[in-house]
């Protein structure tokens, strides 16, 4: 059944990660994601694995849930790994070869790094954001972080409101789609047989009623919102004001330090000295 799909996958809880300000988590995930793409030395990998494991522990979300989250992409991952292994050529002798393919050490390393990055990306961002942050907190956090854009007339509040309403109505629309599908099935409609064109045509009896009722809903909701004195963000307050607490400051500091450490670990020493040289020249000039 379609209604089995759970969107957003938020697991309510009271772990330290759950209690962090959504803005803190958004900023940390930004650093985390950039970090994933920067790391390229074994030490950086070890550091990253440790960071991710501590995040999972801090979220108190069971390992089973985390692994279940990776499951859907395992096949894609294996496929891309194979492609990477087969199509990457290296400098030395190939480890072994068969048919037209030659497998090099570089290919294996590259495939492994790629898979590692993707897995870390999914695990990290879900633990930091979707698993531990309610959709509404996420929206509030985004609205607050992006609020400087209001100065250049970006309607940040409206985007946040649209996102909230979308999240509110997705389950309703899923339910409605199922009802309409059942109604049309009861009138002998068949959605699973026939050519692609025939199946696409069979969707009309679902899509038309769905659109009609969505517009009706939108209209009624607009009236109801107006009756509740909604006028954009003019003079609007919030019940749950976002507040940075001490723990947010600590987490952000630790995050920034780890990020700096990661850069140091990842950038090769030769590059580092080149960077230092460049700085020196720059300073001398000034």
């Amino acid at each position: 059944m379609i209604s089995d799909i759970t969107l957003g996958q938020f697991f309510p809880g009271s772990s330290i990660l759950h209690r962090l300000d959504p803005r803190t988590k958004l900023l940390l995930s930004l650093l985390y994601i950039i970090g994933v793409f920067l790391l390229n030395t074994p030490m950086a990998f070890i550091l990253y694995t440790l960071i991710t494991l501590s995040l999972i522990l801090a979220s108190r979300i069971s390992m089973r849930v985390i692994l279940k989250g990776i499951k859907p992409i395992v096949i894609v991952l294996i496929f891309t790994m194979i492609i990477n292994i087969l199509l990457t050529s290296g400098e030395g002798e190939p480890l072994f070869s068969f048919l037209i393919f030659a497998v090099y050490k570089e290919g294996i390393i590259r495939a492994f790094f790629m898979a590692y990055r993707v897995i870390m990306l999914i695990v990290g961002s879900s633990v930091l954001l979707t698993y531990t942050t309610s959709p509404i907190a996420l929206t509030d956090g985004l609205e607050s972080l992006l609020s400087p854009l209001k100065l250049i007339k970006v309607p940040v509040h409206l985007f946040a409101m649209m996102m909230t309403i979308a999240l509110r109505f997705i389950p309703t629309l899923i339910e409605e789609t199922e009802t309409i599908m059942n109604a049309q099935k009861s009138r002998g409609a068949n959605f699973t047989e026939g050519s692609i064109i025939k199946r696409a045509r069979a969707l009309i009896p679902i899509l038309v009623p769905l659109f009609v009722s969505s517009f009706k809903r939108a209209e009624e909701l607009a009236v109801a919102m107006e009756c509740r004195c909604y006028r954009g963000d003019v003079g609007r307050t919030k019940m749950n004001k976002l507040k940075y607490r001490l723990r947010d400051i600590l987490w952000l500091t630790v995050g920034a330090l780890l990020f700096a450490g990661l850069i140091l670990l990842s950038v090769k020493s030769a590059e580092l000295s080149a960077l230092g040289e460049a700085m020196r020249i720059l300073f001398y000039k000034i």
């Binding site: 309610s134 959709p135 509404i136 999240l167 509740r228 004195c229 019940m239």
Partner: peptide, 16 residues
Amino acid sequence: VATVVEEDVAFGPENL
């Protein structure tokens, strides 16, 4: 309007 009951009840007063 909102995805959580109490947030919805707060919607009107917030607008005010």
